Every structure is written in structure tokens, then in C-alpha cells.
Simulated assay, not measured.
Amino acid sequence: MECRPSPTDEAQIVLIEDNPGDVRLFEEAFRDGQINNQLHIIPDGQAALDFIHRQDEYEDAPHPDIVLLDLNLPRVDGEDVLHEIKHQPELDDVPVIVLSGVDEDLIESRDLDHDADEDAVIEKPVDPDEFLNVIREFDTFQLSVVRTGDD
């Protein structure tokens, strides 16, 4: 996805998600909810690492204010991406919300839960209407964030 400069009052939200249907639901929820933040869509774990390290096609990537991270990613696993984000000094204050299609018992059994790198975990509902409601509630809770870092 193209990374465009944006006004400083817009949060830079990075969605790391490989499922086109889930991406479409996020975009729809942002559009319908008139969420005034920049959404950067990253399709896989390797591209996510390139984005956070500002390399290759993402050399002009903005500093993220929030990362929404799917765990099940191609090329590089979501847990590895999470670990890399939380161990970069310039990104350690960026909230990372793990988006999971797995149930809570499985999340609790993963090393991810014990590392406490994630700031929150949201289970993605299967029903599209429920999914949109989760995103809208999340917006009310988190997406009106004030920018946390400088580019």
C-alpha cells in the first residue's frame, strides 16, 4: 500500500492482515465510521518487517501510532513481527493490538501471551456484522489516539 504523508492530527494505523475479506471489513468500518486516521494495509509478515524498518518499498513509511496485527501471516509469522516491533526502541511505545481468529484458550497457551508484548488481543468474529461492530467499538476505544511519536 502506498504510504502518503498526512496531516499531523491523523493517527497512522498499520493493519497487518493477509485476509482480503478482513481487510475489506476494516476499510468499510473506517469509511462508514468516518474514522479520520490513515490506514496502511500490509499484506504479510515480511512486508510488515520492511514497513517497520523502513526498507525497500516502505522507506518513506510513517511512524505507526497503532498496529493491528493478525497472528497467522504468510512469509513471517505474526508472533515474530510482534516481537520485532516491541524490541525496536523507536517503536516500543506503539500499541499493538493482536487480531486473532483463534479462541482465547489457544491464545493463552501461546508464548505470545506470556511475553506480554501485545497491548491487547481482539478475537475476530466470524459473522461480518459482528466484525464491523467490533471495529466500530474499537474505534471508540482506541483509534482516536493522539500521535505517539515523531516521523
Rank of each mutant, 00 (worst) to 15 (best):
D92W: 05
L15I: 08
V23W: 09
Q46I: 07
R54Y: 06
E79Y: 10
P43R: 11
A48L: 02
F141W: 02
F131C: 10
L143T: 02
A11C: 01
I42G: 11
A61R: 03
Q88M: 08
G78T: 00
D139C: 08
E10S: 15
K86E: 04
D151L: 07
V145M: 08
T8N: 12
D127H: 06
E108F: 10
I42Y: 03
L91A: 13
D105L: 04
V23A: 11
P20N: 14
D111V: 11
A48H: 05
I107D: 13
R147M: 00
P62K: 07
I107L: 10
R31P: 01
A120W: 00
L25T: 10
E90K: 12
E28W: 06
D9P: 04
F30Y: 05
V81M: 00
P7C: 13
L68E: 00
D44C: 12
P128F: 07
D119R: 03
D44G: 14
T140D: 05
V96R: 00
I85M: 04
A120D: 02
S100T: 11
D60Y: 15
E130K: 02
L106W: 03
H40K: 02
P74H: 13
L143V: 05
G149N: 06
D92A: 12
L112Q: 01
N36H: 12
D113R: 01
Q142E: 03
Y58T: 02
C3Q: 04
P20L: 10
S109T: 12
V14E: 02
D80H: 11
N19C: 14
E27N: 08
Q142K: 09
T8Y: 14
G78R: 01
Q55P: 03
L143E: 02
D32K: 04
L99K: 00
R24H: 14
E130L: 09
G101A: 15
A48E: 06
A47W: 03
N37E: 05
S6T: 09
P74L: 07
F131I: 09
L71I: 05
A11G: 12
D139T: 04
G45W: 02
D22M: 11
R147C: 08
S144V: 13
D111H: 12
